[in-house]
């Protein structure tokens, strides 16, 4: 009986680790997709109707996943408190964090032309990262999950 429980526990744990790894890559891809989408929202709203930043965020925040919503929340807080925005996410690289932070620091502070080039530059940089993240999610994410399944199966056989 104890052996059966142990086998089930080990199997679950290894598969769970693999699933978590897969999720990591998925979330990495999702947050970058959200930032790129946010840039698109900014471009259309700033270019055509020059809507204030606060309104753009308020109207579009539900389009994004929890991870990026947290980043937006921190940005709005920084505006209210005159503080500096801090991009906290364990899913993206420091370089991408810096790009997003630079975008937020300068967002809303210049005229339409300068805002456009700021947002477009950030979007292009992040788009490259997004493509890489999508590839990683497809390859590494799936591989990690499959590997965890195989490993779990192998461990079970060895234990039996």
């Amino acid at each position: 009986m104890v052996k059966v429980i142990l086998i089930v526990a080990i199997f679950s744990l290894v598969v769970y680790i693999g699933w978590q790894l897969k999720q990591f890559y998925k979330k990495q891809e999702k947050i970058l997709t959200d930032v790129v989408l946010f840039c698109e929202c900014l471009l259309s709203n700033i270019n055509f109707i020059q809507k204030p930043i606060g309104e753009i965020i308020e109207e579009n925040k539900d389009k994004f996943a929890k991870e990026f919503r947290e980043v937006l929340k921190s940005f709005v807080k920084s505006l209210e408190e005159d503080g500096e925005v801090e991009v906290k996410s364990r899913y993206i690289t420091d370089e991408n964090k810096r790009t997003i932070q630079n975008l937020f620091i300068n967002l809303g502070k210049t005229d339409v032309l300068n805002q456009n080039s700021l947002i477009e530059n950030s979007r292009e940089t992040l788009k490259i990262s997004e493509t890489e993240a999508r590839e990683e999610s497809k390859t590494k994410g799936r591989a990690a999950f499959k590997l965890s399944l195989c490993l779990a199966g192998l461990l079970c056989i060895l234990l039996i």
């Binding site: 700033i46 020059q50 809507k51 204030p52 930043i53 606060g54 505006l79 005159d82 809303g108 502070k109 210049t110 005229d111 339409v112 805002q115």
Partner: peptide, 20 residues
Amino acid sequence: INSIVFKASNNSVYAVNEQL
């Protein structure tokens, strides 16, 4: 000064550029 101008523009200087 920058902070006041930024806040007065509702954190969106581009939106008030015609006035600016």
